[in-house]
Amino acid sequence: MADSIAHAQAHPDGPADPGRRDFIHIAAAAATLGGVAAVAWPLIDQMNPAADTLALASLEYDLSKVTLGQQVTISWRKQPVFIRYRTPAEIAAAKAADHASDLKDPATDASRVKAGHEQYLIVLASCTHLGCVPVFAQGDYGGWLCPCHGSQYDTSARIRKGPAPLNLVVPEYAFLSDTKVKIG
């Protein structure tokens, strides 16, 4: 850039140090780019969840409302969550399949529930393929079938067949008491 400027000068009066000049222009360009980059952050960050959305990120639920063999769907962070009170048969089936060869995303049943509360399975009700809500008691594995593209989950909500790549996600949760759970 400095060269073209030197040529454009109408009244050159002696040479100036071209290295110093280049430095000034490079510094100016760098400062401009840096400023633009810094401004970009607020413009992007504003799209992240706002404080009021984050504040609703945890949810307490009373499990005494769920009876044996029943499943409820609740809304957590605007996403559906299954809370399933599994029958002993379902738990046994899930444990039996812990090392089945068709597990795409191998995980033991114990890793997907809390010790001492094996009867409660809590998972995001969102198929890991493209996000539809799976339906219970359909498919070949006694668990869930996604109506959109036929992914099949077992009684531990692990993917067994179909296009979905991963098991239904277990959200972060903790038991506050035997009947009270805090999700998030």
Partner: peptide, 21 residues
């Protein structure tokens, strides 16, 4: 930042316009 930025741009401006009527 803006004061430093203005200073740098001013230096660039003076360099470019040096000797230009």
């Amino acid at each position: 930042f803006l004061f430093l930025f203005s200073g740098v741009i001013y230096a660039s401006y003076r360099t470019i316009w040096r000797n230009v009527g």
